[in-house]
Design a protein around this nucleic acid. Structure first.
Lengths: 220, 220, 220, 220
DNA sequence: CATGAATGAGCCTTCATTCAT
DNA sequence: GATGAATGAAGGCTCATTCAT
């Protein structure tokens, strides 16, 4: 500052914390979960990011915009991953048994349940569905429909290849996904400290076994 | 105003004041579902019951009190019904197969899903879990734990009697209940007008078949 | 409820101070004038009416709505009065000299200038013209165009009847109205306590004499 | 900054820093007119000058300071010009008729009306009179009183020399200036695109003729 | 019992102003 | 000088709750 500080010509070195938006969204997620979208206060969200109220508005134009962005960031990776899996299946997946594919898919999604950053979003959406049905719409379109379609595709493949019984795939997929949703709600709403720990891996294992045994074509 | 202006229009009054609280709670349920607990406005709740804002406070001391009472009223019947079922099972139900008992139980609960008056409550609870964890606690204690215990009891019975495989009952019960929760959330959050109708009976049927086939002890 | 409480059937006896809206508008006028539309605070407006912030919203849905209503209430009477005068003129007003008619009209409007409740409105509109051009539009349409048309009609009549010189009526009317506007601005913006009192009557008299002498057809 | 910062990229700098304050005031004038003093945003003002928000504060300590300076700069030239005219008149302008002098004066001021840079100021002052009466005071002292005095002086001269009737000069001057104010307000507040064009020269001409005919001493 | 006018705390959002770089 | 990120006071508006009638 006093002598000859050269840094004059670094045009874009400012905006030190490039992560501001992320910091804010982290805080938003916490508050949205804790008090719901309507109940969350911008000031509290800002405090989580070590900022003041007004600063939040330098990065997001409104509270609703924050929720939308939150959905977008969480949604995209999931959507992409599931799209990819679905595509792999449609490409001739040689003769890997459909049960194996389903197992991989469920495990993939199931493991996301442990990540609070991901699992919190659907909980918020469920909570605010009455007030913001458009968010539920968006989430369903981007996440739910995509993942259900992917699973249905594999179930159909299993039926076609004689691996599974002639069940109705659109019904069966609900049985398959039901546990995931149940765990989501369980962890987010009803689980308490004192509850006995349930290893998610074991739980998914049992679930998959029951489901696959239930739909497998009898040997004869 | 002062003396005796004739009660002309009194005889036609239709209000049965005894049912006031119920009328109000009906309205509350509708609004809580539509806008969430925080978003629901007392005035709108009152309008549903044909009352004015202030009158609501003659029956409930606060908005939260309404939610509590709502939960209490909805919970009781469910709890009672489930208690009854659980008792029947323990009364060694002669040798009726455990699968039949499970089927009855799931159908019983599943049919409640169609009743919006019943299914709305858990949705509200899920939505407000962040702000009112005590409500979630209450609901879990009175409804979820009771019904899960009942189902676990029957599953254990099935295992003991050699009808079911040696699965972990506390895991399996989650598979069994998963679909119910999934449908609850689906109908309350993600379902849209244009969606193809899914008959709840068929869906439950398929689900039960998969589950029972999945847990049944192999013949041989 | 117990015996014969009769007062049941007076549906509309409440709302004691029927004048609430007027009280509020009075306060609004004061604050709008004192701080401009944007600068006026609802709370201050409410205080003028002896009310609290929230109460204002029982009567007006927004601050802008208050300004609109203010314009409406002030505007209608003026518009009506001027319409009436214009109509009288178009009806054969026997042979009353046009100068007399103009004198009456100017005096009529000019006296409104003394009424702060009336004169404040245009000042507010002028002040907020940049932010709310639609209010200026409304005012011009309802008040200015109407009154100018009326005056032009009479000036034309004067020319047709040989009372006035062949001036351009649309220009002359601006000379005629200029003083009124000048006084409006003067009183509302520049006048100060210590200024020597100028009797509005004398001022208008002088103005009219100059104008009429200036437009009168030379005798000869 | 102090010692060795290389002047590499200096030669191309186009900014003439000396004109900064003027650039800023230009922007301020535009925004004050468009949104009023309260509604104008520093950031927008800065943008007009191609600067950033913070930079404005290097030249002006506050928004109000900008308004004050704006008034000062606009006022000076007008005041000077009018002073000059007034002086000329007092210097017994040989026997040039008073009507000619008045004509020159009105034309001079009237032509300023077309200059938005000049006419905007009084409009802003009128708009903010409620919040900043001291600005109105300043403007009145520096501009209005001076110009009115000058006009009154000439009118008196006309009366003394037998050119004009024995009117009250302080009243008559208001008639004379009324049109100017009317046009100011008209153009700034009520004029709309679709309005028929009115040549300011013709309008002033008509106005002057009416006024002068109205005050001229009858021949005889 | 009922009413609905009144209250006032609370929150989102804006923006003048500051200041580290 | 210049920047623009950050601040925080301020205000419009909502709505749960109270209370006079």
């Amino acid at each position: 500052m006093t002598i000859c500080e050269v840094p004059e010509n670094e045009p874009k070195w400012r905006r030190r914390p490039e992560s501001r938006p992320d910091d804010i969204l982290d805080g938003a997620l916490i508050e949205f979960r804790a008090r719901g979208f309507v109940g969350a206060r911008i000031e509290d969200i800002a405090r989580h990011a070590g900022l003041s109220k007004g600063t939040v508005y330098l990065y997001f134009s409104s509270k609703e915009e924050m929720l939308k962005e939150l959905i977008r960031r969480t949604v995209s990776p999931i959507a992409e991953r599931l799209k990819m899996i679905a595509d792999h299946v449609c490409d001739d997946y040689s003769d890997k048994p459909s049960s194996e594919i389903l197992r991989n898919m469920i495990m993939l999604v199931g493991n996301g349940l442990v990540n609070a950053r991901i699992s919190a979003i659907p909980l918020v959406i469920v909570g605010e569905a009455g007030s913001f049905p458009e968010h539920a719409d968006f989430y369903r379109r981007e996440v739910i429909d995509v993942s259900m379609d992917a699973l249905v595709t594999v179930i159909k493949r299993g039926i076609d290849r004689g691996e599974f019984k002639a069940i109705e795939p659109h019904y069966a997929v609900r049985t398959l996904m039901g546990l995931l949703l149940m765990q989501l709600i369980w962890n987010g709403v009803f689980a308490r400290e004192k509850d006995p720990e349930i290893p998610i891996g074991d739980l998914l294992e049992t679930h998959l076994n029951i489901f696959l045994d239930g739909v497998r074509m009898p040997e004869e």
